[in-house]
Design a protein around this nucleic acid. Sequence first.
DNA 1: GCCTTAAGAGAAAACCTTTTCCCAGCTTAA
DNA 2: TTAAGCTGGGAAAAGGTTTTCTCTTAAGGC
Lengths: 347, 347
Amino acid sequence: MASDDLPVPVFSKPVTLRDVAAEAGVSVATASKALNDQGRMTAETRERIRETARRLGFRPNSLAQSLLRRRSFTVGLLTNDTYGRFSLPLMSGISDALVDNGVSVFLCNVEEDPRLGQLHVDAMLDKRVDGIIATGKRIDRHLPVDLSNLRVPVIYAFTQPDPDAIAFVSDDADGARLAVEHLCRLGWKRIAHVTGPASFAVVHARAQAYRDVLVENGLPVTEPLLGSWSEAWGHQAVAHLFDGKSERPDAVFCGNDQIARGVIDALRERGLNVPGDVGVIGFDNWEIVAEATRPPLTSIDMNLVALGREAGLTLLSLVGGKPAAPGIRKLPCRLVVRQSCGHPLDG
Amino acid sequence: MASDDLPVPVFSKPVTLRDVAAEAGVSVATASKALNDQGRMTAETRERIRETARRLGFRPNSLAQSLLRRRSFTVGLLTNDTYGRFSLPLMSGISDALVDNGVSVFLCNVEEDPRLGQLHVDAMLDKRVDGIIATGKRIDRHLPVDLSNLRVPVIYAFTQPDPDAIAFVSDDADGARLAVEHLCRLGWKRIAHVTGPASFAVVHARAQAYRDVLVENGLPVTEPLLGSWSEAWGHQAVAHLFDGKSERPDAVFCGNDQIARGVIDALRERGLNVPGDVGVIGFDNWEIVAEATRPPLTSIDMNLVALGREAGLTLLSLVGGKPAAPGIRKLPCRLVVRQSCGHPLDG
DNA sequence: GCCTTAAGAGAAAACCTTTTCCCAGCTTAA
DNA sequence: TTAAGCTGGGAAAAGGTTTTCTCTTAAGGC
């Protein structure tokens, strides 16, 4: 009796279409049509049913809808990057693109475990996801799962795709060009490159772009220094570069922001001013690092959020039945100017 | 004809129980019972049906099962911590606890937007999640959503709970005790505390524990220095501490690892050796930072993965109908010794 | 030989929604 | 008056699974 006024019965069973129909004195068929703007009925009938549904707090059961439509408005996101430097912005973009279409995302971390991967993929398929997005922490490595010949469309984002699949990756050569061209534009002449291990494909792509730009600008090319992706390696590299017998560089293009941070710290310890004496540019634009260096680090952003959004939208259109050509789509990077390279000479 | 040998028909419609039943020459009811170890039938019949299911690659449609059981083996994870320093390890633990029970996780980032929050919660409820876990980036802030009086159980992890809800948080006082006691044990006498802004509840909890431990050990208490959670503040704080007229500290308990990094860098720039002259301890155990400081940073780990696992398991038991007492459960922290505090004196 | 019991298997309802088809009643035109 | 057309609405099937109930047949006990 007291609860008669409550708009939504709290803690009670969900109200079904049947309840609405009974309350409005029509059949479930009519109720369904009223709520979905289908079928023919008088405006009064339609409005009365709608009002009843509102009053009862009716929400259609997605499970039943999905079963019927054979479409769950759900996608699976597979990753092996638990502490996601890369996959997190990616997810953010993906999620962004999907929520607007009422699609929810199952997030699964498969680590490096094929068994876990298969488990998750099977679970997703059983739950009738509309599609799957695979993402990882490295462009040049596969996830430990086989996603070929699935019954649903698959998109790869920032991870190694199967042949004939659709993939989105950042354009590392483009990013490296942006970086080195920026240094050239600012008038630096002897530009060194300190980067990660040779086992990473991006190391080679960026190194080649680095060489190309230097040649195009008539500047001397020195061999990239390969090491690890760490601050410590940035430190060491400065010793190589500035203690060696060869001519000292006046700028350093770093393979990631952590290396750049190591380089900047080492330069400061040597009494060299950044950007007064030496220009430094990073890669990744990891804000937590780039904004903590002194001075703040100019860096290359891989636009991972945008990349994720593209991946999400493409998956959606695939699910909608629109075909898309297989292949790897490289998305451009973006230069983020802070203070570590100095100001334009024409300023 | 050629495809007769294929174990799983690729790219075809999913095989249903009806298909299995037809192929095995029994009714769907019998087929269901055979596969679920229910009902009575001859061992041969059961095995024949099973074999048929295997051969056809049958996988039950979760949507249909969920509809019937009113249980979807799905939970929602709500967060507002997109670039998840804290919520990511948490998720890892949650996911860990749940996958073993065949439960998938919907991940939703609600940012700070109540509208987005409501959207996601409604979507989850429509999809009949078994329960919801709310997590965030601050223990003392609510998510921008109202999760009271939902039809499903809710657990809060590392975020401000509703009254009478179940919540898991890290025990910040415990963590601070561990840190300061560690410094005391190593023989440091004048221990300063540099931490974040007063608007954070954890700042006060940790500061109080800091004072308590110093008093217990008969050491002088100085007022904590409140600032921001940044490296830059760590730098500044060292100036305050070492340029002031008051006696200089010989150890610093920092509110997070970034502050600690700023402190260590500033000390080095002053020619002070860590841990020779000054001991430094951090909080959070953010490995990317803690391992890059020179020397590597001793820190307090909040055990977020374990916290997430607890949250996941508790939600599961709630879903299973076992009641649990409301309230906030504080989980202990863990000391991670690296090199920034020096070695035990008795070593 | 008759009754009881149990085994083995199927029919049908249930979960909830959507959609197709159909029906009854009314209006209009021939 | 009858055929045709339209209108408002309902019945029923579909989606895939689980579970309860019912039915048939065979075996066992007397």
